[in-house]
Amino acid sequence: MAPTTIPAHVDDPVNAKILAVSEDRVQGFHREPLRTIAEQSEVELDTVITRIAAMLREGTIRRVRQTLMSTSLAPGALVAWRLPGERIKPAFEFMFREDPFSGHVVTRSTDRDTPGSDYKLWTTLKVPRPYDMEAHCRYLAERTGATAYKLLPAKKLFALGVGHVRRREIEPGDRTDEPGRVLDTEVVDLTEREWRVLTALKREFEPEELRPDPWAPRAQEAGETLEDFCAIAEDLTERNIVGRFSTFLEHYKQHRDGTRVTRYNALFHWRVPEGAEIRAGQEVGRHHCMTHAYWREGGPEFAGVNIMGVSHGTEKDRVLAHKAAIDEHLEAVGIPVEYTNVFWGGRSEIKPSEVSPFAYRDWCLQRGLDPEAMRA
């Protein structure tokens, strides 16, 4: 008898049930995260493990990992880069392949010439203390030929939490009953022992590592007993350093079965009156179509925008309808939209930004940089 092929696409009903939980509903550290997914999705544990492993092997899921609240671990920023046209592609490759501290690497364009539309490469950046983001960006600009860059650190984040599978059913204007939560971006200091646990905790899982007790090998890797490893991870969760256990879908690229989770990736910009930033961010953040929302100061390069957020969709008109609903909502609650824009995502690669100061020092030495010269 021929072996049964395990479905690995998002539209399979069992996979959809699993993903509706595993994308974003397993918040914090769980000693048996796959069992938690099984219980919440009402799918047998063995099936959850088999299906997630199959989707990971097929590329439907791009990674399985325990996320960290990286804003608590290292100063970070969204960075917009201006480059000559012929330098965009090699700069993209360098940021993605050679810089472990750049996470999202995305080309972006606008529908017409607008303030900032000549900044066509966008990255997220984390540079662990005591090292300096400006020094890091100067090095990247020198290596890539960038003629200008704009650091856009988040002053506040607005909590969101709807996975891509559930987001596909959202109607324009759908939002939570309450405004989004406001999250600060203060960085905390960790001990060397805590960094060892975090380093083991955050590493991506290979399909073969998915098991009911996935942390036992990681505890051994960190030089801890399983009980101590879990206790430290739980303490880090209480301190808002550990995020969620998550299966990250490959939502930009075409899957092997020809499907895509989403096609359009839009970075929305709004300028609201000074003093209204937090309230506006909360109102944007309550809309289910948004995957991220931040208070970032765009400065004159981007017409003074101060609220930014990302939304995804399979149809461009649908993405714009979601944005129009947010614009209307802001006006309806008394927050004038003084300026707005959309930067559309093109080519995109995503990887977790490295946040360890030990890794940063090693990277500097590997590239012939003096780590002391890269300090703040």
Rank of each mutant, 00 (worst) to 15 (best):
S117D: 12
E328F: 03
A154Q: 04
I278F: 06
K351S: 04
L236A: 11
V21N: 02
R181S: 11
E301C: 03
N265R: 06
E331I: 03
V21T: 05
S348N: 10
L125R: 08
L73V: 00
T67Y: 11
F302C: 06
L226M: 11
P75Q: 05
K89S: 14
F245E: 02
G346T: 06
P128W: 13
T247V: 12
H251I: 06
A276R: 08
A233P: 07
V165S: 06
E169P: 02
P3F: 12
E98G: 00
H251R: 11
G298I: 00
Q66S: 10
T124H: 02
H251T: 07
I278L: 05
E142V: 03
T147V: 14
H288L: 15
L190F: 00
A222E: 10
L236E: 04
F205Q: 03
G275I: 03
I88D: 02
G309H: 08
Q282W: 09
S70W: 04
E39S: 13
S353N: 13
P214F: 01
A280T: 01
V333I: 13
D228G: 09
G304V: 00
R143G: 00
V261Y: 15
T110G: 11
P300G: 05
P214I: 03
E274T: 05
H164R: 11
L267K: 04
L140N: 09
Y294W: 14
R375I: 01
Y294G: 04
Y360C: 02
V187S: 05
P300F: 10
F229S: 11
V106A: 13
V305I: 07
V284R: 03
E32T: 10
R279H: 09
D184Q: 05
V10E: 15
S102D: 04
G275E: 08
V105W: 13
W195G: 04
D118Y: 05
W122S: 07
E23H: 12
Y252E: 08
A154S: 12
M69I: 00
V64P: 07
A280R: 06
P172D: 12
L183C: 05
A222M: 11
E23L: 12
V333C: 04
E338F: 10
L190N: 00
Y139I: 00
R279P: 01
L201G: 10
L267M: 08
Q27W: 13
E224D: 11
M95R: 03
M69T: 00
V48Y: 14
D12A: 10
A280W: 04
P273F: 05
P214S: 02
V106E: 15
V337F: 14
R367H: 15
R108K: 07
F358P: 01
T191N: 15
R361G: 13
P207H: 06
